[in-house]
Amino acid sequence: MSTTIDRQWTTRLRRRLVEQLPPDKALPDTQPSYVSSWIYVFGIVTLSALVMVILTGFVLAIRGPQWWHQSAIGHYVNSLHLWSVEIFFFAMVIHLWGKFFMAAWRGHRSLTWVTGAVTFATSIATAFTGYVSQTNFDSQWISTQAKDGINATGAGAFFNVLNTGQMLMWHIVLLPLAAVVLTAVHVVMVRRKGVVPPFEEVTK
């Protein structure tokens, strides 16, 4: 017989969450032996670089464009932001290649694969809006080169690469939020289903 407490939404939601992602799966003590390979490292390298990108992005957002152009510390934080992004994409592409050749969508992991692919696409858009928000000659060049291509898709109606303010808002609010949420969902999917085993482990 269900009680009033059983029926309240907080109880039902908590039980559903624990059922979907039990604590021992969310924060596991051990991993399978096949994970002891360098090819499994690039996911966490990507995640670590993302943390650095977000932290340096916070600092840049607090101080603003004048600071990152005119101050030595601003240049330094701006460079940290750029090189974290470089490492982020470098590691993410190797992570993608590794998972592609492992066919990481096996074993009901299709949603893990799809969330990863969508995160990759979102990250490209985030990086692009970052390049056009630099407020320098490089960003002017990139935006004027990109406008015709983007306008040809029809997206120019609501996404104007020549509008610095709009691009900055997409870069520091909308797209990072989407990238972080998608990354969180991706990691939760990995935790739920576990790391994909090599082909030989499945056929044993």
């Binding site: 032996s33 002891s36 390979s37 360098w38 090819i39 490292v41 690039f42 190797i94 290649w97 590794g98």
Partner: peptide
């Protein structure tokens, strides 16, 4: 990518 496939992982 190629090095990651063949390089020995420490502690394995």
């Amino acid at each position: 990518f190629l090095v990651a496939l063949v390089a020995p992982f420490p502690g394995r």
